[in-house]
């Protein structure tokens, strides 16, 4: 039997790590599906998820040291939150805007992940405002002489706002230890990439900021991990930022309030469904004899138990006290 490290494309990961990658992707998918289901059952007024983008989210984040490095996710990044340590319970408490919601106590919309202990920086809804924050976090790490890096994500629409340009330019000048990940799923709600940018690959823009940019197959978790690992090493060793464009696809509507049939053909959605990154990685593991059916059942069962426990807990958790809306406007 060959050692895992000799398998082409395994990126130097051990079997346990590869299975952990798979588990995080599968769990992210499970959480997203449950969030949509709970929304359809009328239990939460809004859900926004990113089924189809798990390879990008989990693969990129897997290259970090959780709790040491920083993440500044955008609203589709259940996979980022899960990979650095948020639990299905954390995410469902946010979905149902319960008092215990660690991200915001029910103040922010769901999927606006935050947790200082895990170094997940709270985000907003205006797109790409988190990019300058990531640069600031990374700049501060530089000033303090720490080897922390910051990973920030945005969507393809997020490549257009001015904040994105300003952040990348600043990061390039100061060689900040930051990794910009564009989860390019081809659509900003309904607006196609061809209406968002005049270049096929947004990674070429990195050249204008004086740092490397790469485009990777965002549905190939190991390819994304490999690119992120290289970017993290560059950042940590003082060589500055990297822009990673991961080409992927959102297999679901933009949010619970969107009907993507208005702008995407079912044929297109089905064709991408055949490239599902979770299924694809499962097949890769099977092809390389790293899992058998029994092991897969075990992993999937674990995720099912976790999500059921989380659902029950979150549904029964108390809502915030109404008058607490007036509290914590200013820090003391």
């Amino acid at each position: 039997m060959v050692s895992v490290k000799e398998i082409p494309g395994a990126m130097g990961l051990e079997r346990e790590q590869l299975l952990d990658l798979y588990y995080k992707m599968f769990l992210s998918r499970t959480v997203a599906q449950r969030e949509r289901m709970l929304n359809r059952l009328g239990k939460g007024p809004f859900a926004i998820t990113g089924e189809g983008q798990e390879a990008t989210q989990v693969g990129a984040t897997f290259a970090l040291r959780p709790g040491h490095d920083w993440v500044l996710p955008y609203y589709r990044d259940i996979g980022v939150a899960i990979t650095v340590g948020q639990t299905p319970r954390d995410l469902l408490l946010a979905l149902l805007s319960k008092s215990e919601d660690i991200s915001s106590g029910g103040r922010n919309m769901p999927s606006h992940f935050s947790e200082p202990k895990l170094r997940i920086v709270s985000g907003s809804a205006p797109v790409s405002t988190q990019l300058p924050h990531a640069v600031g976090v990374a700049f501060a790490a530089q000033l303090r002489g720490s080897d922390e890096v910051a990973l920030v994500t945005t969507g393809d629409g997020g490549t257009s706002p001015g904040d994105t340009h300003e952040a990348m330019n600043f990061a390039g000048i100061h060689k900040c230890p930051v990794i910009f990940v564009v989860e390019n799923n081809g659509y900003a709600i309904s607006v196609r990439w061809s209406q968002q940018a005049a270049v096929p690959d947004v990674s070429v823009r990195a050249a204008g900021y004086g740092f490397p940019g790469v485009t990777v197959d965002g549905n190939d978790v190991l390819a994304v991990y490999g690119a992120a690992k290289e970017a993290v090493e560059r950042a940590r060793s003082g060589d500055g930022p990297t822009l990673i464009e991961a080409k992927t696809y959102r297999m679901v509507p933009h949010s619970s309030d969107d009907d993507d049939r208005r702008y995407r053909t079912r044929e297109e959605v089905e064709a991408w469904g055949k490239k599902d990154p979770v299924v694809r990685f499962q097949k890769w593991l099977e092809e390389h004899d790293l899992v058998d059916r029994r092991k897969l059942d075990e992993i999937q069962q674990l995720a099912a138990e976790e999500i059921d426990e989380a659902t029950e807990y979150a549904e029964n958790a108390p809502k915030p006290a109404p008058e607490s809306a007036l509290e914590r406007v200013y820090a003391d």
């Binding site: 920086v121 924050h133 640069v135 600031g136 976090v137 700049f139 501060a140 300003e166 000048i173």
Partner: peptide, 27 residues
Amino acid sequence: NRCVDTPLAEAAIVGVAIGASLNGILP
């Protein structure tokens, strides 16, 4: 490093300051 000339970009001046303030700096 403590008196930093920034590019001419006000959103970045404030946005980078925000990020730095989350990581132990008082900009």
